[in-house]
Design a binder for these strands. Sequence first.
DNA 1: GCTTGCATGTAAGCCGTTACATGATTTT
DNA 2: AAAATCATGTAACGGCTTACATGCAAGC
Lengths: 183, 183
Amino acid sequence: MSSIKYALLSLLAREPLSGYDMKQYMNGRVSFFYKINNNQLYPTLAKLEAEGLVQLESHERESYRPARKVYSITDKGIDFLKAWVMEAEEPRSLDDFMLKQYNSWLVEPEAMIGILREKRKEHEERLKIYRGKIAGFREQQAVYPSRDPLFSSIAVIEMGIRNEESYMEWCDRVIEALSRDEI
Amino acid sequence: MSSIKYALLSLLAREPLSGYDMKQYMNGRVSFFYKINNNQLYPTLAKLEAEGLVQLESHERESYRPARKVYSITDKGIDFLKAWVMEAEEPRSLDDFMLKQYNSWLVEPEAMIGILREKRKEHEERLKIYRGKIAGFREQQAVYPSRDPLFSSIAVIEMGIRNEESYMEWCDRVIEALSRDEI
DNA sequence: GCTTGCATGTAAGCCGTTACATGATTTT
DNA sequence: AAAATCATGTAACGGCTTACATGCAAGC
């Protein structure tokens, strides 16, 4: 159920890479969605190959180094990735959703627009809940001093509100770009 | 190293609760920071009790039901939680950081302001990196069609930008509230 | 009569993290 | 002389998820 296999496929959908390359991408400072370690990486790659989702493209030894194994994604792998991107099942985290979005280019724009409209709706709902919560606090008391637990509660909910708002704005922006068919 | 113990302490810092209560809070729809399951919950509570960070406040059996065990936080527990909130070590995720913020009311406002200024700076840095990345793409080509991998890359980075911006705004807002000493 | 809620807990298994292992070259 | 880089992989451990277990009462 882990998303790591999808992360690897997402990279390979763009260009053939070795395990080492993928690790560099994923653990680079400009945070990719998931960090990976060797123990996840190499067994997962082997599994993906066994399932026919990726294939070994070259296996060349540069003098002294261990042979560099470059993988590419197969057609089956592309289909598998596409199906995951489009499936209705709730992604578990923002990173999970964004990893799917990273593959939006694989999918028909109309389908993507549908997914994004759904998402937008969800975040609108949550925004309402958060706004309601703060309003409830404010009804009891206009302001809370910084050593009151409710100070912290309000601060945290306000972060939630900002997140939901920017998420919605982003959905609008991408829906619009998909409608124009360019970003 | 998990944050679950801190999540439990965060709840108990506000009011005494049973394990069952905490689970309701944490798994409720208005997402708390972490979801929890019984296998994490009960052993962790037992550990916290053994470490003297929480104590059993009541243990009453309501007729047929298993005895409801209500815990409260100890002074040692408060100190432990406070130390965690203030420690410099990088929180691993937004949820982790927000869980700390949920306990900001325990900490001296001046200390909190320092932490938030640091955070703001970090996010400013990342914002610059993201903006630079998009500018780099745009230099090569003004717009990308929706079936181009770079369409998705740009979309994802734009989400990053929005997130960093709202994070920074939020820091400013809370720093200001702490300076006024009310929210 | 079946499901849901209250309330505690345990067992098995998967997933992820940290550390270890190899080994030559290049950089400090 | 020591550390970092390239490049693959394995071992051990800990955390988290899913499922199971108990048991009564109230609602459908």
